[in-house]
Write a protein that binds this DNA or RNA. Structure first.
Lengths: 342, 342
DNA sequence: CTACGTCATGGTAGCGCTACCATCTGCTTC
DNA sequence: GAAGCAGATGGTAGCGCTACCATGACGTAG
């Protein structure tokens, strides 16, 4: 005569309660909820009535345990305050908001080690999909992704060797296009200014370098970088450094828009004419670049779209319909504005 | 002779495997992992060795089901791209990164309905704590929070009637302090410009109004708002509207820094002298306000600290040590800068 | 010396759900 | 008319873990 453990769950209705009330087996309730087309019209209605009456909500933990699969998307980004990733996240959230998937977000702080730790935490939970920023995972992270047993989408960049799927664009090409534009506009001593040189920044720099070399304009002294996290403040300081180092500087390609804004403000403060004396190009094309005075040339990147697309691909894969092409390049767009209109 | 279901888990080691290898009972392994002090030194070592050798990681879903408690913090914010919430999130993440808690983030899009939906999704999972932005929950949301059976922290604002705990500051006082500062600096026709008038913006506006009325300067035509989401672009447009409506405008208190930046750029573009002809005050004090030219007066808000503090309070409550005072006001700071230095 | 705590450990019975297989009905096929 | 089959439904047995209670060893008090 064992008395039941008095509902350690705290008394909320379970699937058995619904089944009893609807006069069916528990498994039929389960099916009615997850695959309604496999239950007759009649029972479906009865079950729905019981669910509504009891206010039944399935326990996601029990579900995850029984099916060895949690309705969770694991998302790993290197930064929460960088508005670039915020936009990607927004795309992810918007695409998932009318599904029953929950989102578990991890912040890697641009650290491979932290990424490994987070994957280790996410893995045992058996997420439905993983979305990770970047394509330069450590070998350990890569193995964790490969053995995660769920669709994986690497976002922000494209590359030759996806773990599973990829959505992004070429940062190298972006850097090159920005630089070629400045050369075309007549700038010659074009500096590169970059903070927190993560792999994507490195590739933009490589694109810059390729363009400068092709034009016979490359000079290592034109490059000013720091591992410090990016900020508008830092943009100003790096620009000062760059100008001190190369007084003949006549343009800057900034690793991102924060930096570009810092440069712009410093030009105002020091009464340096933009675009006449100094041309400025940013990267990402944040909303404010168009409004700035003068408006700032930038590379528009498809951040929101990357988020949406990554979810679409993951959902397709979950549904067993893997996309034909696992690597999607969403491209970018050069926005020519006043800051380079010499 | 029922053959076991061939490990639908996919063959990763379970607590039983560890127990067998260590020559102890499963429950002892469970204890060694969660409350090491209750297991003898000897066994603890043996168990640790077995765990390491097998690479055992507890299944969080099974854990959650058995203990009716998931190691998850549910976090609800109204926007992912608003850098204010990004900073709060950063504080939350930094405070939780060396615990075993996972974070499930929901985006309410400033919608009460969406908030209800998300709480409905988070609840059945039995999170360890809930952190929600704002204090103006709908009655339904409020009940969901009250019956969540876990610590709840409302963040961003303080108010008289916490569901459980609160961390924030007074937006009314912030709005009033900013406005009083401008009055003190000699501005008289001070406009209020605000986008997406969420409850916090409303209270800043109320603070502005209180200060203006106290000084006998209030005029309803000075107020320009819109429900449209905030952006730098919008700041410019609203400023144009405001100026068209009240050509004698000599200052603006902006609902947030994005708007302020838009105003600043428009002043540059239209050759309006700042702070001489128009004074500008923002709200939040984003990094760039100090670097802008001219630098922009703003109300510094303790966003990161709000995130940290909310987690600290939640963790204390989980540990059974509820803070003496459930409502914490972290205050704000007026940063006087060039944009109001008439 | 016995009664009685205390501590370390273990066994059992679920937590609430779903995978798997069995059963049953009704219909088609030859 | 028997065999075969598809579709709807249900029963059973877990998923991997922890709550609860039992047990045994030991020490301490009376």
């Amino acid at each position: 005569m064992t008395k039941p453990r008095s509902r350690r769950g705290g008394g909320r209705p379970t699937i058995a309660d619904v089944a009893r009330k609807a006069g069916v087996g528990a498994i039929t309730v389960s099916r009615a909820l997850r695959a309604p087309e496999r239950v007759s019209e009649d029972l479906r209605r009865q079950i729905q009535a019981a669910v509504d009456e009891l206010g039944y909500l399935p326990d996601p933990n029990a579900r995850a345990l029984a099916s060895a699969r949690a309705e969770v998307f694991g998302v790993l980004v290197p930064s929460l305050t960088n508005s670039v990733f915020a936009e990607v996240l927004r795309g992810i959230y918007d695409s998932l908001s009318d599904s029953s998937f929950r989102i578990q977000l991890g912040n890697t702080h641009y650290s491979g080690l932290e990424e490994e730790r987070l994957l280790q935490v996410f893995g045992p939970q058996r997420p439905a999909a993983l979305i990770v920023a970047g394509i330069d995972q450590t070998p350990i992270s890569r193995r964790l992704l490969e053995t995660a047993g769920c669709p994986v989408v690497q976002v922000m960049e494209t590359g030759p060797d996806p773990v599973d799927m990829m959505v992004g664009f070429s940062h190298f090409d972006g850097g090159r296009a920005a630089t070629e534009h400045m050369i075309e506009m007549g700038y010659r001593r074009i500096g590169f200014i970059g903070a927190r040189m993560d792999p994507r920044s490195q590739r933009r720099l490589a694109g810059y370098r390729a363009a400068m070399e092709a034009a016979g304009l490359f000079d290592a002294r034109l490059i000013t970088t720091t591992p410090v996290p990016s900020s508008v403040t830092l943009g100003r300081e790096l620009f000062r450094d760059a100008l001190a180092k190369v007084p003949t500087l006549d343009g800057v390609f900034c690793n991102n828009d924060d930096i570009a804004l810092g440069v712009l403000f410093e030009c105002h403060r020091a009464s340096i004419a933009v675009p006449k004396t100094i041309g400025i190009t940013g990267f990402n094309d944040l909303d404010m670049m168009e409004v700035a005075f003068p408006s700032v040339t930038s590379i528009r990147t498809p951040r929101y779209e990357i988020g949406r697309r990554s979810v679409a691909m993951a959902l397709a894969a979950i549904a067993g319909k893997r996309p034909q092409e696992p690597v999607v390049d969403l491209g970018f767009e050069l926005k020519r504005r006043e800051s380079t209109a010499r």
